[in-house]
Amino acid sequence: MKIGIPRALLYYKYEKFWTTFFDQAGIEYVLSPVTTKDIVTRGESLAIDEACLPTKILLGHIDWLIDKCDYVFLPRVEYAYRAQMCTKFLAQIDLVRNTFRDRKIQLLFYNCFKKGPRAEFKAFKKMGKFLGLKNAVIKDAYTKARQAQQYFEMFRSQHQLEVLKETKKNKVLVVAHAYNIGDKFIGEPILRTLRQLNCEPILAEYFDAYECIHQAHEISKTLPWGYNQHLVGAIAKYRDDVDGIVILTTFPCGPDSMVNEMITRKVKDKPILVLTMDTQDGTAGLETRLESYVDILNFKKEHRNG
């Protein structure tokens, strides 16, 4: 039996967790490639117009996987960091199942509707049973997978803190969801352009989630979505350490459309650039916007240094 993991949405959150679990449990899997224009185009034609870009990309990845594996792995998760997630994470299984109904898609998933690690383990146990795994194997694989993910995130955030401290370049806090900034099609052109402009992109996503959420209330006390709490918290915690903030969002993201507006109204002490990505090709508009933005950062520095 072979499992297909789409390189989209939650993969960018749980990369180490999932792959370690399947590795430890001895389950063979195939990972879809990094997002290409072909995948985006395919996803676009499968999705309804109103779906958000990351959802379209997910469908493109599943389209790539469907003939290359027995089961497509796609979990259903309701909570992130003990807070609500965007509804697309709850709906994705049904969406995918209906979109690919004619092609007889087989889905493998775990359902997690409760908060906390116990609920997650239970969900994994259920999925493991379905895969024919023994209890002890599931428990062992789950523990190792959790640990791997934890270390991965810890090292990532520590490394970024070191960079933040040592770099002499313009530091730009890039505020974007993991599945946007990690995606080769959406996030990569922005990181590359920033580096070409001699800036150090600092990813809000890479900072420790709970530490950030702890401080998110400084900007908003009533923010419902867990992932957005993380990002907003990163702004609250690190705004004094960076030169500017770039918010990257995809069209038409519901939560972001409200949260970004709130950020631009409440955070006034740093230059903020909001970039909205859609399937448009061509980086001209993007380059012009980032270039002018970095010019502003440089002007400010010049001005400060006399």
């Binding site: 230059p271 859609d278 002018s292 400010k300 001005h303």
Partner: peptide, 13 residues
């Protein structure tokens, strides 16, 4: 501000 660009906005698409 004081002869320096501090902010700009461009039309969205």
């Amino acid at each position: 501000e004081n002869g320096y660009v501090v902010d700009y906005a461009m039309n969205t698409l």
